[in-house]
């Protein structure tokens, strides 16, 4: 009996010396972020993913941007091959832009990306845009002003909304903190939302929830299809909850890209408002 116990204990010691298995499972994939606006042109950026522990510096970032893909958008009748374009203020600074095929409400658009033998496809719909009932600022501490909006959901119709803001000086729109809305729970109702600004990205921890009196603010109120809502909801969940031990986040974002890729190809019906914080 004693011998047996000794043997088991020895076995346990040997087992405990076994190296812990490292996380494996990285698979190289393309990352697509594409949009087509109602009355606007398609805009696509393509990058690829990286193993988790790769160093991320400017050289590496340069390398993940795909610049030589053939990107085609079609609505079933017309087809357009997008052309590469640069804007150094943005990331990724290289993207593919349309110039002839405009998004029309209610119509479906197919995306095809061909690159180094890979083919990625996706399909989306451009929903009709929706107007806000009103937009205003509410006073907060000192000079802080909170942006508020009111809109009325169309009854008995499935709608998804996404809200962005930007300051005049910003190069692009930034989603608000809780920027996605699903009318499942407010079908046909009038909704007042007090908006908090979102961080530009998750590389910075410092940002302001409110605007300051005097700011010239643009607000983008967009409708989007379910696939887009699901993707951006997952994105928001990852940003907000991955660092929250109570909520947590371990889910993959719901991509609508077919082929060896992840990301989103999404149609939007956007209305842009401009207002000065007083």
């Amino acid at each position: 009996m004693r011998k047996y116990i000794i043997a088991i204990v020895l076995l346990a010691i040997v087992l405990s010396c076994k190296k812990e298995t490292k996380t494996e499972g990285y698979q190289p994939r393309f990352v697509v972020e594409g949009s087509i606006e109602q009355d606007g042109y398609a805009n696509i950026s393509i990058t690829h993913n990286l193993p988790f522990y790769t160093r991320l510096d400017s050289a590496q970032i340069e390398e993940i941007i795909i610049k030589y893909a053939k990107v085609t958008v079609s609505d079933g009748l017309e087809e357009e091959i997008l052309t590469g374009s640069y804007d150094r203020k943005l990331f990724p600074y290289f993207f593919y832009k349309g110039s002839s095929l405009k998004g029309k409400a209610g119509r479906n658009y197919k995306l095809k990306i061909e690159y180094a033998g890979n083919i990625l496809t996706a399909e989306t719909m451009v929903p009709a845009r929706k107007n806000l009932d009103s937009i205003w600022f509410e006073n907060r501490d000192g000079m802080d002003r909170q942006l508020c909006i009111r809109f009325t959901d169309t009854p008995n119709e499935k709608n998804y909304y996404k809200i962005y803001t930007r300051l005049e000086k910003d190069p692009a729109f930034t989603r608000t903190l809780l920027s996605n809305q699903d009318d499942q729970y407010f079908d046909g109702k009038t909704l007042d939302l007090k908006l908090n600004r979102g961080a530009y990205n998750n590389l910075t921890q410092e940002y302001d929830s409110y605007f300051v009196a005097g700011d010239v603010v643009e607000l983008k109120f967009a409708t989007l299809p379910k696939s887009g809502f699901d993707f951006w909801q997952g994105f928001q969940n990852e940003l907000l909850n991955a660092a929250n031990p109570l909520m947590g986040s371990t889910n993959a974002l719901k991509s609508n890209i077919e082929g060896n890729g992840i990301g989103i190809w999404c149609g939007y019906g956007s209305t842009i408002y401009r207002i000065t914080a007083k």
């Binding site: 996380t23 494996e24 499972g25 990285y26 698979q27 994939r29 990352v31 972020e33 990058t47 690829h48 993913n49 990286l50 193993p51 988790f52 790769t54 991320l56 993940i64 990331f91 990724p92 989603r175 530009y200 990205n201 998750n202 590389l203 994105f235 990852e238 940003l239 991955a242 371990t250 889910n251 993959a252 974002l253 992840i262 990301g263 989103i264």
Partner: peptide, 14 residues
């Protein structure tokens, strides 16, 4: 196990 960039933010691939 992996990372990618969407809308300027880094997203984890689990």
């Amino acid at each position: 196990v992996g990372r990618y960039i969407v809308a300027g933010s880094i997203i984890n691939e689990y």
